[in-house]
Protein backbone atom coordinates (compact mmCIF):
# COMPACT_ATOMS: atom_id res chain seq x y z
CA UNK A 1 0.00 0.00 0.00
CA UNK A 2 1.45 3.33 -1.05
CA UNK A 3 1.88 5.85 1.72
CA UNK A 4 0.60 9.41 1.42
CA UNK A 5 4.10 10.64 0.70
CA UNK A 6 4.52 8.11 -2.10
CA UNK A 7 1.29 9.29 -3.64
CA UNK A 8 2.35 12.91 -3.41
CA UNK A 9 5.58 12.09 -5.20
CA UNK A 10 3.72 10.20 -7.87
CA UNK A 11 1.38 13.11 -8.50
CA UNK A 12 4.32 15.50 -8.69
CA UNK A 13 6.06 13.28 -11.21
CA UNK A 14 2.99 13.05 -13.46
CA UNK A 15 2.65 16.82 -13.23
CA UNK A 16 6.25 17.23 -14.35
CA UNK A 17 5.61 14.92 -17.30
CA UNK A 18 2.52 16.89 -18.19
CA UNK A 19 4.56 20.08 -18.24
CA UNK A 20 7.02 18.49 -20.65
CA UNK A 21 4.34 17.18 -23.01
CA UNK A 22 2.62 20.54 -22.90
CA UNK A 23 5.84 22.33 -23.79
CA UNK A 24 6.52 19.84 -26.60
CA UNK A 25 3.04 20.40 -27.93
CA UNK A 26 3.59 24.12 -28.10
CA UNK A 27 6.99 23.75 -29.72
CA UNK A 28 5.50 21.39 -32.29
CA UNK A 29 2.69 23.86 -32.98
CA UNK A 30 5.18 26.65 -33.63
CA UNK A 31 7.34 24.44 -35.85
CA UNK A 32 4.28 23.15 -37.66
CA UNK A 33 3.45 26.68 -38.72
CA UNK A 34 6.89 27.16 -40.16
CA UNK A 35 6.95 23.75 -41.84
CA UNK A 36 3.53 24.38 -43.32
CA UNK A 37 4.70 27.69 -44.74
CA UNK A 38 7.76 26.04 -46.24
CA UNK A 39 5.64 23.33 -47.84
CA UNK A 40 3.23 25.92 -49.15
CA UNK A 41 6.02 28.08 -50.58
CA UNK A 42 7.50 25.13 -52.42
CA UNK A 43 4.20 24.30 -54.05
CA UNK A 44 4.13 26.93 -56.84
CA UNK A 45 7.59 25.86 -57.98
CA UNK A 46 6.67 22.18 -58.09
CA UNK A 47 3.38 22.94 -59.80
CA UNK A 48 4.97 25.12 -62.49
CA UNK A 49 7.67 22.53 -63.01
CA UNK A 50 5.05 19.83 -63.52
CA UNK A 51 3.12 22.03 -65.91
CA UNK A 52 6.20 22.80 -67.97
CA UNK A 53 7.21 19.16 -68.15
CA UNK A 54 3.70 18.10 -69.10
CA UNK A 55 3.85 20.67 -71.86
CA UNK A 56 7.20 19.40 -73.07
CA UNK A 57 6.26 15.76 -72.74
CA UNK A 58 3.42 16.16 -75.21
CA UNK A 59 5.97 17.00 -77.86
CA UNK A 60 8.40 14.17 -77.27
CA UNK A 61 6.19 11.26 -76.31
CA UNK A 62 6.92 8.02 -78.08
CA UNK A 63 10.19 6.30 -78.69
CA UNK A 64 12.29 9.42 -78.51
CA UNK A 65 11.27 10.18 -74.95
CA UNK A 66 14.03 10.27 -72.35
CA UNK A 67 14.11 7.14 -70.21
CA UNK A 68 13.47 9.07 -67.01
CA UNK A 69 10.13 10.02 -68.49
CA UNK A 70 9.15 6.97 -70.46
CA UNK A 71 10.83 4.33 -68.36
CA UNK A 72 13.14 1.68 -69.76
CA UNK A 73 10.34 -0.71 -70.55
CA UNK A 74 10.92 -3.00 -67.61
CA UNK A 75 9.28 -3.17 -64.20
CA UNK A 76 11.41 -5.97 -62.82
CA UNK A 77 13.48 -4.07 -60.29
CA UNK A 78 11.94 -1.63 -57.90
CA UNK A 79 13.53 0.97 -55.73
CA UNK A 80 11.41 2.15 -52.84
CA UNK A 81 12.31 5.34 -51.02
CA UNK A 82 10.68 5.51 -47.61
CA UNK A 83 10.64 8.91 -46.06
CA UNK A 84 9.94 9.21 -42.34
CA UNK A 85 10.95 11.52 -39.54
CA UNK A 86 14.15 11.42 -37.54
CA UNK A 87 12.46 11.71 -34.22
CA UNK A 88 9.59 9.99 -32.53
CA UNK A 89 6.93 11.02 -30.04
CA UNK A 90 4.52 11.59 -32.86
CA UNK A 91 1.92 8.87 -32.43
CA UNK A 92 1.51 6.49 -35.34
CA UNK A 93 2.97 8.86 -37.92
CA UNK A 94 6.05 6.84 -38.83
CA UNK A 95 4.42 3.44 -38.34
CA UNK A 96 1.72 4.40 -40.81
CA UNK A 97 4.22 5.26 -43.52
CA UNK A 98 6.27 2.16 -42.81
CA UNK A 99 3.19 -0.05 -42.86
CA UNK A 100 2.09 1.32 -46.23
CA UNK A 101 5.59 0.85 -47.62
CA UNK A 102 5.86 -2.65 -46.17
CA UNK A 103 2.58 -3.73 -47.75
CA UNK A 104 3.81 -2.43 -51.07
CA UNK A 105 7.22 -4.07 -50.73
CA UNK A 106 5.73 -7.41 -49.70
CA UNK A 107 3.40 -7.27 -52.67
CA UNK A 108 6.34 -6.70 -55.00
CA UNK A 109 8.36 -9.49 -53.43
CA UNK A 110 5.38 -11.84 -53.75
CA UNK A 111 5.28 -10.97 -57.45
CA UNK A 112 8.91 -12.00 -57.74
CA UNK A 113 10.24 -8.49 -58.33
CA UNK A 114 13.53 -7.25 -57.08
CA UNK A 115 13.18 -4.65 -54.38
CA UNK A 116 15.73 -2.27 -52.95
CA UNK A 117 15.08 0.31 -50.29
CA UNK A 118 16.42 3.74 -49.51
CA UNK A 119 15.33 5.14 -46.20
CA UNK A 120 15.17 8.81 -45.40
CA UNK A 121 14.88 9.58 -41.72
CA UNK A 122 16.07 7.51 -38.82
CA UNK A 123 12.74 6.15 -37.63
CA UNK A 124 11.86 4.44 -40.88
CA UNK A 125 15.29 2.93 -41.05
CA UNK A 126 14.94 1.55 -37.52
CA UNK A 127 11.64 -0.07 -38.34
CA UNK A 128 12.50 -1.40 -41.77
CA UNK A 129 15.94 -2.81 -41.07
CA UNK A 130 14.46 -5.47 -38.80
CA UNK A 131 12.77 -7.08 -41.76
CA UNK A 132 14.66 -5.90 -44.83
CA UNK A 133 18.19 -5.30 -43.57
CA UNK A 134 19.72 -6.81 -46.73
CA UNK A 135 17.57 -4.74 -49.06
CA UNK A 136 18.35 -1.31 -47.68
CA UNK A 137 21.05 0.18 -49.88
CA UNK A 138 21.28 3.65 -48.43
CA UNK A 139 20.04 5.72 -45.53
CA UNK A 140 19.78 9.46 -45.39
CA UNK A 141 19.58 11.35 -42.15
CA UNK A 142 17.98 14.72 -42.64
CA UNK A 143 18.31 15.88 -39.05
CA UNK A 144 21.59 17.61 -39.89
CA UNK A 145 19.72 20.06 -42.10
CA UNK A 146 17.78 22.62 -40.20
CA UNK A 147 15.97 23.78 -43.29
CA UNK A 148 15.32 21.45 -46.17
CA UNK A 149 16.66 22.88 -49.40
CA UNK A 150 17.25 21.55 -52.86
CA UNK A 151 20.89 21.00 -52.00
CA UNK A 152 19.92 18.96 -48.97
CA UNK A 153 17.80 16.50 -50.92
CA UNK A 154 20.03 16.38 -53.99
CA UNK A 155 21.96 13.31 -52.73
CA UNK A 156 18.71 11.34 -52.51
CA UNK A 157 17.79 12.19 -56.08
CA UNK A 158 21.33 11.43 -57.23
CA UNK A 159 21.22 8.03 -55.57
CA UNK A 160 17.87 7.22 -57.20
CA UNK A 161 19.01 8.35 -60.64
CA UNK A 162 22.27 6.41 -60.30
CA UNK A 163 20.38 3.23 -59.45
CA UNK A 164 18.17 3.80 -62.46
CA UNK A 165 20.93 4.67 -64.89
CA UNK A 166 22.98 1.67 -63.86
CA UNK A 167 20.01 -0.54 -64.53
CA UNK A 168 19.66 -1.71 -60.95
CA UNK A 169 16.21 -0.17 -60.67
CA UNK A 170 13.48 0.25 -63.24
CA UNK A 171 10.78 1.87 -61.16
CA UNK A 172 11.36 4.30 -58.31
CA UNK A 173 8.59 4.98 -55.84
CA UNK A 174 8.66 7.37 -52.92
CA UNK A 175 6.59 6.79 -49.79
CA UNK A 176 5.81 9.86 -47.76
CA UNK A 177 3.00 11.27 -45.72
CA UNK A 178 0.74 13.64 -47.55
CA UNK A 179 -0.29 16.54 -45.39
CA UNK A 180 -4.05 16.47 -45.72
CA UNK A 181 -4.77 18.54 -42.65
CA UNK A 182 -3.42 19.06 -39.16
CA UNK A 183 -5.33 16.03 -37.91
CA UNK A 184 -4.91 13.84 -40.95
CA UNK A 185 -1.76 12.72 -42.70
CA UNK A 186 -2.09 10.10 -45.38
CA UNK A 187 0.79 7.78 -46.28
CA UNK A 188 1.08 8.13 -50.03
CA UNK A 189 3.20 6.47 -52.70
CA UNK A 190 4.54 8.70 -55.44
CA UNK A 191 6.14 7.24 -58.51
CA UNK A 192 9.25 9.19 -59.41
CA UNK A 193 10.69 7.18 -62.28
CA UNK A 194 9.21 6.85 -64.85
CA UNK A 195 7.90 10.32 -64.19
CA UNK A 196 4.21 10.59 -63.63
CA UNK A 197 2.91 13.46 -65.70
CA UNK A 198 -0.36 14.81 -64.47
CA UNK A 199 -2.43 16.05 -67.34
CA UNK A 200 -2.42 19.65 -66.22
CA UNK A 201 -3.63 21.78 -69.02
CA UNK A 202 -2.53 25.33 -68.54
CA UNK A 203 -5.40 27.58 -69.46
CA UNK A 204 -5.16 29.68 -72.60
CA UNK A 205 -1.54 28.97 -73.38
CA UNK A 206 -2.57 28.34 -76.94
CA UNK A 207 -1.19 24.82 -77.10
CA UNK A 208 -1.04 25.03 -80.88
CA UNK A 209 1.57 27.74 -80.66
CA UNK A 210 4.97 26.64 -81.81
CA UNK A 211 7.43 26.71 -78.99
CA UNK A 212 10.94 27.79 -79.59
CA UNK A 213 13.49 25.86 -77.59
CA UNK A 214 16.96 26.82 -76.61
CA UNK A 215 18.77 24.44 -76.56
CA UNK A 216 16.67 21.70 -78.16
CA UNK A 217 13.51 20.25 -76.67
CA UNK A 218 15.21 16.97 -75.81
CA UNK A 219 18.13 18.65 -74.15
CA UNK A 220 15.89 20.78 -71.99
CA UNK A 221 13.88 17.77 -70.98
CA UNK A 222 17.13 15.92 -70.28
CA UNK A 223 18.18 18.55 -67.72
CA UNK A 224 14.69 19.21 -66.47
CA UNK A 225 13.75 15.67 -65.51
CA UNK A 226 16.46 15.07 -62.91
CA UNK A 227 15.72 18.50 -61.49
CA UNK A 228 12.06 17.71 -61.37
CA UNK A 229 12.91 14.58 -59.45
CA UNK A 230 14.78 16.61 -56.85
CA UNK A 231 11.95 19.10 -56.60
CA UNK A 232 9.40 16.31 -56.20
CA UNK A 233 11.45 14.76 -53.42
CA UNK A 234 11.90 18.12 -51.76
CA UNK A 235 8.23 18.97 -51.81
CA UNK A 236 7.36 15.51 -50.48
CA UNK A 237 9.86 15.83 -47.67
CA UNK A 238 8.57 19.27 -46.78
CA UNK A 239 5.05 17.90 -46.57
CA UNK A 240 6.40 15.06 -44.50
CA UNK A 241 7.97 17.49 -42.07
CA UNK A 242 4.74 19.44 -41.74
CA UNK A 243 2.88 16.18 -41.20
CA UNK A 244 5.37 15.10 -38.58
CA UNK A 245 4.90 18.23 -36.50
CA UNK A 246 1.14 17.99 -36.86
CA UNK A 247 1.24 14.37 -35.68
CA UNK A 248 3.55 15.27 -32.84
CA UNK A 249 1.32 18.13 -31.83
CA UNK A 250 -1.78 15.97 -31.58
CA UNK A 251 0.16 13.16 -29.88
CA UNK A 252 1.44 15.57 -27.27
CA UNK A 253 -2.00 17.09 -26.90
CA UNK A 254 -3.36 13.64 -26.12
CA UNK A 255 -0.54 12.97 -23.68
CA UNK A 256 -1.20 16.24 -21.88
CA UNK A 257 -4.87 15.44 -21.60
CA UNK A 258 -4.19 11.92 -20.36
CA UNK A 259 -1.79 13.26 -17.76
CA UNK A 260 -4.49 15.68 -16.62
CA UNK A 261 -6.97 12.84 -16.20
CA UNK A 262 -4.42 10.77 -14.34
CA UNK A 263 -3.64 13.64 -11.97
CA UNK A 264 -7.33 14.09 -11.31
CA UNK A 265 -7.83 10.43 -10.47
CA UNK A 266 -4.74 10.34 -8.31
CA UNK A 267 -5.72 13.49 -6.45
CA UNK A 268 -9.10 11.97 -5.67
CA UNK A 269 -7.50 8.83 -4.34
CA UNK A 270 -4.97 10.86 -2.36
CA UNK A 271 -7.65 13.02 -0.75
CA UNK A 272 -9.78 10.01 0.16
CA UNK A 273 -6.84 8.36 1.77
CA UNK A 274 -5.91 11.51 3.64
CA UNK A 275 -9.44 11.87 4.97
CA UNK A 276 -9.54 8.24 6.02
CA UNK A 277 -6.29 8.72 7.87
CA UNK A 278 -7.57 11.83 9.65
CA UNK A 279 -10.73 10.00 10.63
CA UNK A 280 -8.72 7.13 12.04
CA UNK A 281 -6.57 9.52 14.02
CA UNK A 282 -9.63 11.29 15.41
CA UNK A 283 -11.16 8.00 16.46
CA UNK A 284 -7.95 7.07 18.22
CA UNK A 285 -7.81 10.42 20.06
CA UNK A 286 -11.47 10.26 21.09
CA UNK A 287 -11.12 6.68 22.18
CA UNK A 288 -8.05 7.65 24.20
CA UNK A 289 -9.88 10.57 25.82
CA UNK A 290 -12.86 8.40 26.74
CA UNK A 291 -10.61 5.83 28.34
CA UNK A 292 -9.34 8.33 30.91
Amino acid sequence: MASLKDMRNQIASVKATQKITKAMQMVAAAKLKRAQDAAENARPYAARMAAVIANLAKGVSGDGAPVLLGGNGSTQNHLVIVSTSDRGLCGGFNSQIVRAARDYINGLIADGKGVKIITVGRKGNDQLKRQYADRIIATFDMSAHKVLTLDAVQPIADAAVAEFNDGRADVVTLFYSRFKSVISQVPTPKQLIPAQIDAVEEPSTGSDAVYQYEPSEEEILETLLPRNLTVQILSSLLENTAGFYAAQMSAMDNATRNAGEMIKAMNLKYNRKRQAQITTELIEIIAGAEAI
Binding site: Y213, P215, I220, L224
Partner: peptide, 19 residues
Protein backbone atom coordinates in the same frame (compact mmCIF):
# COMPACT_ATOMS: atom_id res chain seq x y z
CA UNK B 1 20.62 35.00 -69.02
CA UNK B 2 19.85 32.01 -71.23
CA UNK B 3 22.45 29.29 -71.66
CA UNK B 4 22.76 30.28 -75.30
CA UNK B 5 22.88 33.98 -74.71
CA UNK B 6 21.15 36.72 -72.84
CA UNK B 7 17.68 37.53 -74.06
CA UNK B 8 15.03 40.14 -73.46
CA UNK B 9 11.34 39.41 -73.31
CA UNK B 10 8.63 41.94 -74.05
CA UNK B 11 4.91 41.44 -73.95
CA UNK B 12 3.42 39.13 -76.61
CA UNK B 13 6.68 37.31 -77.07
CA UNK B 14 6.50 34.09 -79.08
CA UNK B 15 6.35 30.91 -76.95
CA UNK B 16 9.89 30.23 -75.91
CA UNK B 17 11.70 28.03 -73.44
CA UNK B 18 15.29 27.93 -72.39
CA UNK B 19 17.53 26.83 -69.60
Amino acid sequence: PGTEGEFGVLVNHAPFMTT
